[in-house]
Design a protein around this nucleic acid. Structure first.
Lengths: 348, 348
DNA sequence: CTGAAAGCGCTTACAG
DNA sequence: CTGAAAGCGCTTACAG
């Protein structure tokens, strides 16, 4: 359905945009004085300021930040945020956490998506730097970031989130993936589970490797040498669903399924909906309906990841120097039926 | 946990950033020739181009977009996107849909959040315009946008999403809220429900009013004059939970609950988890676990909302003039247990 | 194929 | 308290 809004005006002739020069002219002052008034600098007579403001209003003057930022140091008040995908809440909640803190410091967010593609990540990151963002946040997919070294040396603070920086000495904020998965696996083992199907993201994904390592730690500790046969790969809801379905239909079906991220957990839940004798399910990443669905999760707060990243960048902008830091945020195990509700941005 | 990364270098002395002038100088050409090479213009001898590119590489030259955009029309390749909240997937999926299309046209996304606050919405919108964004997308909370009129007359395409523009004649993309809720209510009535508890967002929210109107249409059609007594208000998961709990405990408890957005649906689900004799639940907005939880939904695709908005803006940028349009996207009713899976960005 | 000049719209540094 | 000049780093328009 498409229809015209009744009574809407014809496209008006386009007046051109008023500049500071126009305002100054109309107010009968120099361009510098107009600049003073409109950017809140002192030392202008009240009457003069009033005239300038009125001229600005009359002309509907809006300053040009491009020009302003260019002149004053070629650094804008924008910060760049590179994430994998805007439709994945994990990423956007990180951005939300960072944004909240940044805007208290007068900074704005420029978000670009890498589509989980290393080459595109590189391209959009460089574009952000061309805009002279004041700081850069990356939830990296690529593991090659040497191209950022010169930019970093030029003083742009960079913070890597969820996965550490590899070949650039930048600050990073990560979760304690390995420990979390080791301890959760130990719980499953303590409950008597031995056939634990692990569904991990693709090899090469740093968080997946860390989490699998935690699983290996726990399995080896109880003498399970062939732990690798329990490790399966999935990357999205669809593949996770198929893998889970196959696993349960096969011989030697697992008594527990451990999904290593929220997308995989969703697939597993899908596969098991209405199954007669469902295995225990454990998921890395908390999600809203976990309590309702009776699923144990390893919980953490993406918003907090973002907030910590912003803190780190603000620190650097504030002049803190020294070695890059890696901050490791703890996760929390929430067993099913615990009734515990972790704090969330929305609701609960 | 916080620790220093071992072996990280001391903060290096900051070299200053190379400009086009530096590159030209090193390559022994004029600044204009360097510009030609690096911005891909023709008419440069191969050998000259090679020298320039090498100089650029040596100096790690990165063009300054602020300067480029300022010179060439003072319009950047960024588009502005104002949403209520980065941690609400409904908004970010809209942004995802728009971004995908826009980037095919070489445009980048600048996202700002209004925090659902009209005054803040106004402020961030104006800041975007100061950055001379090429187009502006707004999922509005305010219902006063007259201040955008001059900007629009200056030729910045604006598209309102999910809620129409009120006092500025801009294009908009909305859902068929009223019809969708009327028809869904009719279904409930056909199933024999008469005591239908409606949980709507705050009065003043345009989508809420439309949806309530649809409910009224259906209730009046079957002679229910006192339909208003079934309308309750909630704004987030928490309030929706309390309202739902109260409703069910009260006398004359509803046999069906109709939640008018995804946040409210989540609250209702929460309230009903484990209830002995739960009412039917119907929710506006689709969500991933609706099939698993056995909930009927009014489905639509936020990604598509964003895509259509981007199409509209690109059209305007391409020179289409004429009256602003309001595009109404249809929704789909998905009954519980239908097994139907709507297409989603992630998974399924 | 190449370059010198002017200018985008502001702010900085300096002078009065 | 106010202003004329210079310049941020590029590209446009023009000339050769």
């Amino acid at each position: 359905m498409t229809f015209d809004v009744p009574g809407a005006p014809e496209a008006a002739p386009r007046p051109s945009r008023a500049t500071l020069r126009d305002v100054a002219h109309l107010a009968g002052v120099s361009i510098k004085t107009a600049s003073r008034v409109l950017s809140g600098q002192p030392n202008v007579r009240d009457e003069t300021a009033r005239r300038v403001r009125e001229a600005a209003r009359t002309l509907r003057f809006r300053p040009n930040r491009l020009a302003r930022d260019l002149r004053s140091g070629a650094v804008s008040t924008a910060v760049g945020f590179v994430i994998g995908d805007l439709s994945n809440p994990f990423y956007t909640q990180i951005a939300a956490g960072a944004e909240r803190l940044l805007r208290e410091h007068g900074l704005e967010l420029f978000i670009a998506t890498s589509d989980e593609d290393p080459e595109r990540e590189r391209r959009v990151t460089l574009t952000m730097l061309e805009r002279r963002v004041r700081a850069l946040f990356v939830v990296p997919v690529a593991d090659e970031h040497a191209y950022l070294v010169p930019e970093q040396q030029l003083g742009t603070p960079m913070v890597f989130i969820d996965r550490p920086a590899v070949d650039v000495a930048a600050d990073s904020i990560v979760l304690d993936n390995r420990r979390a998965v080791r301890e959760a696996t130990e719980r499953l083992i303590a409950l008597g589970h031995r056939r634990i199907g692990l569904l991990a993201d693709r090899t090469g994904v740093w968080t997946a490797s860390e989490r699998v390592a935690g699983f290996a730690d726990a399995m080896r500790a109880v003498g399970t040498a062939d732990w690798q046969r329990w490790v399966h790969r999935a990357h999205d809801v669809g593949t996770a669903r198929s893998v889970a379905t196959e696993l349960l239909a096969g011989p030697d079906a697992p008594t527990a399924l451990f999904a290593l991220n929220n997308r995989i957990t969703a697939g597993v839940i899908d596969a098991l909906a209405g199954a007669p004798d469902p295995p225990a399910i454990l998921g890395f990443d908390d999600f809203e309906f976990a309590p309702t669905l009776g699923i144990s999760v390893i919980a953490h707060d993406p918003v907090d990841l973002g907030r910590r990243a912003a803190e780190t960048a603000l620190d650097r902008l504030g002049g803190r120097t020294g070695m890059p830091q890696q901050i490791v945020l703890p996760t929390r195990f929430i067993p099913r039926g615990s009734g515990e509700r972790p704090p969330r941005e929305h609701g609960s």
